[in-house]
Amino acid sequence: MLKIKDLRASVEGKQILNGLNLEVKPGEVHAIMGPNGAGKSTLANVLSGNDKYDIIGGSVDFGGNDLLDLSPENRSREGLFLSFQYPVEIPGVSMVNFLKTAVNEHRKYRNLPPLKAGDFLKMMREKKELVHIDSTLTNRSVNEGFSGGEKKKNEIFQMAMLQPKLSILDETDSGLDIDALRIVANGVNALKSKDNATIVVTHYQRLLDYIVPDYVHILYKGRIVKTAGKELALELEEKGYDWIKEEMGE
């Protein structure tokens, strides 16, 4: 589904990704962990097409497409979803209008007619329950005045609405209390199927108690330096990241 080869990227002239390789298959959950500054968020942003980041080299194949050649909107329409670490507030753009436009643009891409208003509202109602999102939130502007937890729930709600093939959760656990964390994780687990995949980008092991990964990768200095099963996350939690640095000869 996703094949990243030797990916190198920079932001504001500073190279962050230094030849990253990763392969994700349908039905898998991958966790990417690493210390601050390792390039976790850069990877998430590069994959979703944020043009603040410059690609220096390497390739990314997503379901047979050259991902790096697609616009952010077409990456989304092809089935990629990024749950933002810091979801953006957009005053004046209503949640309903935003979601309806997004869902229908996805449908248009697949040559489907726009959803009827009734069907759309029904879909929204169903997906809202999945993340226990407060009904009044969807009557407001996108993320405007939402609490930290509400913003993250809103990301998973959007994920449920768009039904992506590959979801990248960028530090979705940051700023969440334990109840919100559980709700968000349950939402992600409920959306899991044999056809889609998830990349969980996180600093802490906490979220992985709820979203159990098949693989844990350690990202360090812009490269994946270690890959193992879920037990690697526990080891990291216990020892911190310093032993990685030592192992890397520093």
Binding site: S48, N50, R77, F84, V88, I90, G92, F98, A102, E105
Partner: peptide, 27 residues
């Protein structure tokens, strides 16, 4: 940033821009 957020949800750049301009003007 808001423009990228909208685009990352599959909303085309032109449409996303219009949504934001309209939101600005509408209130």
């Amino acid at each position: 940033e808001a423009l990228f957020y909208l685009r990352s949800r599959g909303i085309g750049e032109h449409e996303a821009r219009l949504m934001m301009i309209f939101a600005f003007a509408h209130d």
